[in-house]
Simulated assay, not measured.
Amino acid sequence: MRVVRVTVDLTVPDLDEAAGFYTGFLGLEDEDLGLDWVARFVAPGSGDHVQLMTTDASAPENPQVTLKVDDVDAFHAEAVRRGYEIVHPLTDEPWGIRRFLVRAPDGTVVNIARHRE
Rank of each mutant, 00 (worst) to 15 (best):
D70M: 10
N62H: 09
D56C: 13
Q51S: 13
R82S: 04
W37F: 11
V87E: 08
K68W: 15
Q64L: 12
H88Q: 10
A18Q: 06
D106F: 03
R103S: 03
V65K: 09
Q51K: 09
P94T: 13
V80R: 13
T55R: 15
I112Q: 00
V8R: 00
N62K: 05
E61I: 10
G45I: 01
A113W: 01
R98N: 12
R116D: 02
L33N: 01
E93I: 12
E85C: 08
G83W: 03
V4N: 11
V110Q: 01
W37Q: 01
V6W: 07
D16K: 12
D71Y: 14
V102F: 03
V110W: 00
L90P: 02
L28S: 04
I112S: 00
Y22G: 03
K68C: 14
T11N: 05
T54E: 12
L26Y: 07
P94I: 08
F25G: 06
V102P: 00
V50W: 03
A57Y: 12
A79M: 06
L26W: 04
A57D: 15
P60Q: 11
D32I: 00
T7P: 03
D9G: 13
V69E: 05
T11M: 08
I86L: 05
Y84V: 12
A104L: 07
P89Q: 04
N62P: 10
F75G: 03
M1C: 08
L52Q: 05
V80W: 09
R98Y: 10
G45R: 04
G107M: 07
D92W: 09
D32M: 01
F100V: 08
T66C: 15
G47P: 03
R5I: 02
E78T: 10
L28A: 06
P94R: 09
H76W: 10
